[in-house]
Design a protein around this nucleic acid. Sequence first.
DNA 1: CTTTTTAATTTAAACGTTTAAAATAAAAAA
DNA 2: TTTTTTATTTTAAACGTTTAAATTAAAAAG
Lengths: 322, 322
Amino acid sequence: MSKVTLKDIARDLNISYATVSFALKDDPRIAAKTRALVHKAAKKHNYIPNHLAQALQSRKSMMVGCLVADLTTSYVSELLQSIGETASANNYSILLGLVKNSEQYIDAQLKAFCEKRVDGIITSWLVPSCRNRLSEINSSGTPVVVCSSLCFESDIPFVINDDLEGGKIAVRHLAALGHKKISYGCLNRKYETVRYDGCCRAAEETGTGKPALFNSEAELIRLLESEDCPTGIIAFSDYDAIAIKHFLDKKGLKIPDDISMLGFDDVWAISQPEYDFSTIAIKRGEIGRQAMEMLLDRINGRKVENRLIKPELIVRGSTAPV
Amino acid sequence: MSKVTLKDIARDLNISYATVSFALKDDPRIAAKTRALVHKAAKKHNYIPNHLAQALQSRKSMMVGCLVADLTTSYVSELLQSIGETASANNYSILLGLVKNSEQYIDAQLKAFCEKRVDGIITSWLVPSCRNRLSEINSSGTPVVVCSSLCFESDIPFVINDDLEGGKIAVRHLAALGHKKISYGCLNRKYETVRYDGCCRAAEETGTGKPALFNSEAELIRLLESEDCPTGIIAFSDYDAIAIKHFLDKKGLKIPDDISMLGFDDVWAISQPEYDFSTIAIKRGEIGRQAMEMLLDRINGRKVENRLIKPELIVRGSTAPV
DNA sequence: CTTTTTAATTTAAACGTTTAAAATAAAAAA
DNA sequence: TTTTTTATTTTAAACGTTTAAATTAAAAAG
C-alpha cells in the first residue's frame, strides 16, 4: 500500500500540505503554477489519496451496501450487475453483503454496513427477518431502497417488477391467440400471487374465463381431465414451466400442439431449443438501474417515488393459436 | 447515520474518551465496573463504532476488493458467493468491482480499490489488460490472488481448476466404458487448451488413440464420416456440448445410443432431463474459498503456494458403454 | 512611498478513533 | 505515617484528509 501522503508531497515542494490539498483539487485560489508543480510531484511520488481519511472528514463514504441473498440465481446476479454498473457510473462503490437468508447473517452484514458508514443500502428483497432492522436504519438517516420482491407493506421505497401487468400481458397474449380455457399454476408450491390477479383482470377484459388454478400434479390432472381442459397454461415462473413440461411429456402432451404454455422471468434455459418457451421477461437490468438511481437520489436528498417496471412479452415457440 | 461518538459516551459518563475506547474493547486495565458502565451507555446511545476512523488509525480497512468481469455467468457468481462467505466468516467485507472486461473499467475499479485502501484484491481471472497493473499493486504491498482462469505466466499467486486432470478424467471415463475412438472439440471457437493435453496424456495411459480435434461443424462432419468415426465426444465445455447436441440432433444421431458425449463445468442446464449430460464439474465453491483463504494468509503475512483444484466427474445419462 | 486591495499561502482545528506515555488514585509494604 | 507498588484513568499525539480563518506577499491605487 502506498505510504505517500499529502505531507510527503508538501515536504518535497517545501510548501504547506494544505496548499497541496487545495492544488490537487484545482482550487483556483492556488496559483496555476503551484498547482502544476503539485500535480507533477503527486504523479512522481505515485500519490494515491486516502479515501478513508477523506470519508472520515467529509462524512461521505461513497459506498453503498448491497444486501443479496443468493448470488447463484441469475435473477440476483443480473440485478447486482446493473446495480454495480450504475453505482460505478456515479462514482460509488458496492460493499457486498451476501447473506444466507437468516436473521443472524443479515444482522451481521447490516452491522458491517453501518460501521463502515455506507451512504445508503440497496437490497434485493425484503423479508420479515430484516424488515424492522432496515426500517430502523432507513429512518435513522441512511437511505434504503428495495428492489425486486417485497413481501409486505413497508415504509422503504422500492422498485419492483409489475407482476400485475405481467399477468395481464400473459393472458392477453393467449387470448389474442384464441385461447379461451386458461389455467394458472405450478406443481409444488402453494403460492398465490399478484400475477394471478393480473391474469384474472385481463381475463375479464378479454372475455376469457377466469383462469383455473392448480398447485400440484393432482390438481393439474384433474383440470386436464375435466371438460374445462385448458388449451393454455400460464406457469408461475419459467422453472415451474419446465417442471410442468416434464410432467406433460410424461402424459404424452406436446407443446404447443396440444397445449400452449408460457411462464415468467425469462431464465436462460428456456431460450434453448429444447424448451423454446414464450415468457414474460422481468427487466432485471432496468430494475437494478432504477433502484440504484433512486438510492442515489435519496442520498442526495431528493424525493423519490416507488416504481413499477413493466415486464415484457417474449414470444417463442411454446405458444400457438388454438 | 448515527452521530454518536466515543466523546458523547465519555461526556455522558464524565470520563475521558480514551477510557471509553479501552472499555469498549474490554481492556483489563479498565476497572470491571467502569467497563460495564461504558457498555451500558454505549447500548443506550446506540453507539456504532466508526470504522472509517478505526481503519484510518489502524491502517487496516478489513475490506478486500473483488474484481469480476461478468456476474451473469453462473461461474463467476458461484465463485463470488464462496469468496463472500469466506470473507465474512473472517470479518472481511467485499468491495465489489464489476468490470466490463476493458482496460478503462479495470483501471477505474483498481484505482477505487487502492484509494479505499483495501487490504487485498482477489480477481476471478487475469487478462493481459490488467496483468501489469495487478502485478504492480501486488508487489507494492497489497496482496493479490487470482482464481479461475489464468492466461499466462504471472508472479501473482493463484488457485485454479486443474484442467489437465479434468481432461484425463474425461478420457479415463470414456475409456472405462470401452470407447476407443474419442474426439475433442467444439463447433465455433479456435481454442487449444490444457484440457486437451490432459486428454492426450490419459489417452496414452489408457491405450486409447490420441483424440481427434475438431473446431467447426465441417470438421466434425468430416470426422463422423471418416473411418475414425468417434464413439465418444469430449466437448470443450458444457455449452459447447449443448451446441454439439443440437448439431447431432439435426444429423439424426442420438446420445448416448449412437455416440457418448460429456463436457466440462457442470452448468445448471445440463442437469435437466432434456440434456442429462455427464460432465467434469469445476469445484467453483472450493476455488473461491481457497482463493479467499490464500488472500487472507497473504494479508496476514503468511507464505502461500499456488493451488490446483481437482475437478470431479459427474456421470449422467450422456455417456454409455460402447 | 504609503496605503489599500487582491492573490496566494499557511495555520489550526476538525473528522472519530487508537494507544503509548504520563498522571493520578488506591492499596500494600515499610 | 511515609514510601513503594499496583490499579486505574487521562493526556496527547497520531492516522490523512478538508477547510474556515488568519497570515503573508504581491499588485494596484493613492
